[in-house]
């Protein structure tokens, strides 16, 4: 159920103009500490690379995004 919901939500985010990659779903067990750390680090880096949301179109155009 969650996987279906998240899949739809990703498409929906794209529809309202937000990158789908800003949403991530992974299954990590409590016994997989290092894996959790790896997933989180990778995701944080991905979000950092994407930068803040471009809520303001005029401003985004002005700075040339």
């Amino acid at each position: 159920m969650t996987s279906q919901r998240v899949a739809v939500l990703k498409d929906l985010l794209e529809f309202i103009g937000i990158e789908g990659e800003r949403l991530n779903l992974v299954w990590v067990s409590s016994a997989e500490g290092p894996r959790f750390a790896k997933e989180m680090t990778e995701f944080t880096e991905k979000i950092r690379a994407l930068g803040p949301l471009n809520w303001n179109y005029q401003r985004a155009v002005a700075v040339g995004i």
Partner: peptide, 9 residues
């Protein structure tokens, strides 16, 4: 996408 974001926001 940028325009869609503006519209929906």
């Amino acid at each position: 996408p940028l325009e869609r974001l503006e519209v929906w926001r």
